[in-house]
Design a protein around this nucleic acid. Structure first.
Lengths: 223, 223
DNA sequence: ACCTGAACACCGTTCAAGT
DNA sequence: ACCTGAACACCGTTCAAGT
């Protein structure tokens, strides 16, 4: 693409968009300065004229995702927080989740850049503002932000995937000794029919979210 | 340490303990096969006789931490779940948290090995067993595990640290335009006195945990 | 101002060789 | 069986040089 030895028309924005594309298509591990440069038809070292280093690329990736989130949130037709803050926040979180689901690598990147991003702070500021309009004190709002954590942005940390448990029967039998309750749980769920993919992550996410939102509402009206 | 060219007395366990020590003392980034070998007085390649590769070292690190968690949980004098499941689970989670707090690198490692670890599965099996004894259906127990997520093991994902906000006043002023509610929240909290370290992560964690536990109890008794 | 080639200091890992 | 030295194929990044 680059006219030999001259002007490749690079820019910070083009670099970041290319980085997001690589992460989307080939995973975060495939994103190296060299692969990024190659995808832009340029040598690795050219990138350093537009981003300080790889850390800056990852910071930029957060901005790219958050820009999409902001857009999705802006397009929302949510009730006024004064009328129904739970629906308003719920819609916002789920809109953000839709963006995050399109970029499965995003949570991993977010986790490593805690506190660094103004774009993320802006999002949480919006959530807090919504809660304020619903009558939250700053103190309760603060605690609410902590209680929601990454869930406010639409993702949660699953430490083990019981999905992995639709294993051959013999493996299940061996596991039954180590994790009897989990095995029984899967067995219980499979009475209905197919076990494969029995974890509906979307509905589990919404369950957890509503649990927290309901709890917060109780505290809000109690205050 | 190694008798030149012979018998360094290595073992999988010794390798993993050394790996945990490096992560504890110098951070996860400092843990390389070469640094690990050096800390054991051995060449990097010797490690491969005891662990398959670096991934296996990280898997082993999860085991090391989970062994500590199991020990902490076993030492607990908690009420029977039939009598007070919320206290029983709460104590378990906080015991696990104490271990995790001693190994700040652990959450980062856990996140990258979702579903791989039997030790983690065993922990969640225990949590589910506790809930079963408290009268949870498998279905509600399942949803509860998802709702708790990493919180069951004592940590939660904070995407931004409002702590970082006790900044010079001029920075605060500039930020006020971008994130007015967060700035006002900090200002509100600082009326009492010191802002520095105003986020008490332990109590915020417990707040979020109790919010979920209370919500689950309501569902349990409603069923 | 923007891009490049060669090089440096790292990685994880393989392989053939030592004892 | 266990440990090692040299090497390979990668990283991110620096630097001096090109246009």
């Amino acid at each position: 693409m680059a006219r030999a030895g001259q002007q490749a028309g690079l820019s910070r924005e083009r670099v970041l968009r290319a980085a997001a594309a690589i992460a989307d298509e080939r995973g975060l591990a495939a994103l190296t300065m060299r692969s990024l440069a190659e995808s832009l038809g340029v040598e690795a070292m050219s990138l350093y004229h537009h981003v300080a280093n790889k850390e800056a690329v990852l910071d930029g990736l957060v901005e790219v995702v958050m820009a999409e989130v902001e857009q999705a949130v802006a397009a929302l037709d949510a009730p006024a927080p004064e009328d129904d803050w739970q629906s308003a926040l719920r819609m916002r979180v789920l809109a953000s989740r839709e963006v995050l689901v399109r970029h499965p690598w995003a949570p991993g990147v977010f986790e490593t850049r805690t506190g660094a991003s103004l774009a993320v702070a802006r999002y949480f500021d919006g959530v807090l503002g919504l809660m304020r309009r619903a009558g939250f004190s700053y103190e309760l709002g603060h605690r609410a932000l902590h209680a929601l954590g990454s869930r406010a942005l639409g993702f949660s940390q699953e430490l083990f995937a019981p999905d992995g448990m639709e294993a051959p029967e013999e493996v299940m039998a061996a596991m039954a000794e180590e994790v009897p309750h989990l095995v029984a749980m899967v067995a219980d769920a499979s009475h209905g029919g197919a076990v494969l993919g029995w974890c509906d992550y979307q509905s589990e996410f919404e369950f957890g979210l509503d649990l927290i939102l309901d709890g917060l509402e109780r505290l809000r009206e109690g205050a």
